[in-house]
Design a binder for these strands. Structure first.
Length: 321
DNA sequence: GGTCGTCAAGGGGTG
DNA sequence: CACCCCTTGACGACC
């Protein structure tokens, strides 16, 4: 028996005018004559993004959804070089605390997926420094929400640079330059071009990092490894985590665009995975990465309802018998 | 009111 | 090395 809890990413296809990712480009910022006024504008945008995030969380509660990935674009230009003196957290404190209490009150799981230019295994030191800076922003956001930052940020391993082994070892070397509190915030995910489940598992076991298994990525990119043989080890990377095992679920757009995410999740593909791991963990949290976001979650739940080895708990959670 | 090029940020692949 | 692609949502210039 395993409890399965579904979540979705950042934005809603059903709630209107609720973007948590509004932005201002650096070009626009520079065009403003009055720098202080331009910074106030950035702050207004960030606050609006947080207000919409709060609306989305309330909407999630209404729809029985308790697992959600925040946008990583909440604060435009937060870590841009030209804005280094800006205390972007100051105007957001109140709203962040409010969001945090809401999350805790309703026992929701929330996390982040920083953008792809956060690369911890880069051979370029500036890239590493900027990556840590960006992760620090995520850390401060979680602290502002008064949430335990442990295992709230999922990352890819990074670049392969045509040498998997060296690139994995560079991850290990660079890892020691990452401050401890930020290390503890991180989870790693197998990707679809550079690092397989085996590669990622090597780092996770060596460095004590939880592994977020992406089933679609694994089908798109693997060597000889069978994921079923590795599953127990994947689960073991979560031993020290206060949170349930997490995975990503999505479906290929088409045969020739296999890596691209489809609008919805293929329920049969999902159950091929679930039936294999059923009973191996008390609970698993599945993050849906589909173009139709929350809409694909609701559609999938409707399809799941009809299956025989399923007992519904609520609109986004079920027991797999 | 709708469409399309552009945007801070990295890396992969091709020629 | 030059160039375009990936991926993402939103902005804003333009029609």
């Amino acid at each position: 028996m395993t409890i399965v809890r579904m979540g979705y990413v950042a934005m809603s296809m059903e709630l209107k005018n609720a973007s948590p990712s509004k932005t201002m480009t650096f070009a626009q910022f520079q065009k403003q004559e009055d720098r202080e006024a331009a910074i106030r504008k950035l702050e207004r945008i960030a606050l609006e993004n947080l207000e919409n995030t709060h609306r989305l969380l309330k909407n999630n509660l209404f729809n029985d959804v308790h697992f959600y990935r925040f946008s990583s674009k909440l604060i435009p230009l937060a870590t841009h070089d030209e804005l280094s003196g800006w205390d972007y957290m100051r105007p957001l404190k109140g709203k962040l605390a409010e969001i945090g209490s809401f999350v805790k009150e309703h026992k929701m799981r929330v996390d982040f997926h920083p953008d792809h230019f956060v690369v911890l295994n880069s051979p370029n030191n500036d890239v590493l420094i900027n990556s840590v800076k960006n992760l620090k922003m995520h850390y401060l956001l979680l602290k502002g929400m008064k949430l335990d930052p442990n295992h709230r940020c999922v990352l890819h391993v990074g670049g392969n640079y045509k040498d998997t082994e060296k690139s994995l070892e560079r991850f290990v070397t660079n890892w020691s330059d990452v401050p401890r509190p930020i290390q503890q915030m991180i989870m790693l995910e197998n990707d679809d071009t550079s690092f397989t489940l085996d590669d990622t598992l090597y780092l996770c076991l060596k460095l004590g990092i939880p592994l977020v298994f992406d089933y679609h990525h694994h089908l798109a990119f693997h060597r000889e490894e069978q994921w079923e043989d590795k599953w127990d080890q994947v689960v073991s990377t979560w031993k020290t985590s206060p949170l349930p095992v997490k995975m990503h679920i999505s479906s290929p757009k088409s045969e020739d665009k296999f890596r691209h995410h489809a609008d919805y999740v293929d329920v049969d593909m999902f159950f091929r995975f679930l039936n294999e791991i059923k009973g191996s963990v008390p609970q698993i949290d599945c993050m849906i990465e589909a173009k139709q976001k929350d809409k694909s979650l609701f559609t999938l739940m409707n399809e799941i309802k009809g299956r025989e080895n399923v007992e519904m708990i609520d609109g986004s959670t079920f027991t797999l018998l």
